[in-house]
Amino acid sequence: MAQKPVIELEGIRRDFIVGSETVHALRGVSFTIHEGEFVTIMGTSGSGKSTLLNILGCLDTPTSGEYRLDGTPVRTMSKTQRAVLRNRKIGFVFQSYNLLAKTTAVENVELPLMYNSAIGARERRDRAVTALQRVGLGDRLNHKSNQMSGGQMQRVAIARALVNDPAVILADEATGNLDTRTSFEILVLFQQLHAEGRTIIFVTHNPEIAQYSTRTITLSDGKLREDRVNTNILDATVKLASLPVEEE
């Protein structure tokens, strides 16, 4: 799988100053993720995975080391440049969905494109509708966020992450708030997106999810402990089929 590198990390360190002490959240992390990979980043709490996710998502910058996203060096970028970079290259999926309240699915999905002045209202709407259809919510375009189930809300969030055709989708415990069955439905969706060539980084503390990805990076104490290519990738649809159908 010698594809083009999407994410290149070289000796990433991130220090936080808490009171008079310096906390080393990341102590020199290096790895490269290529286009089309489905990577899970694992680690216990305090391992530095949240800090790493923030840096990968361009929400934070490393104290030292270089991070190139789709070939662009991020460390020296201004806040505004990073905002634009996030807008064009990254799709976020959060644990708690983070949809706008009392807002329709389409409007929620349109949001990233709202901050891209190159895209007009017509194209924005078309792309949002396409993204929603892709996640299986073509019939719920105008449902408001408070009229949807957790699984549906997370699908809207995934559609929102897809709508700007990002270089990488960053999912932060994306199944953490969902029941087992819905979690696997979402996992099926991620596997499908991966099959279509999307690059996905899935941050989780759940080792089961790692079995469905192509590669697992494990962090411990701010360092990379294990970087393993998964040879036996499980199919989430199989697992989903084996789960009992819950009564509504």
């Binding site: 998502g57 929400l59 806040k79 634009v84 996030r86 983070n98 990233p112």
Partner: peptide
């Protein structure tokens, strides 16, 4: 606050 965080994460600039 969370809405602001979300907007920023999807690309809203300080100015926006």
């Amino acid at each position: 606050t969370r809405e602001i965080g979300l907007r920023m994460s999807v690309g809203a600039r300080t100015r926006d």
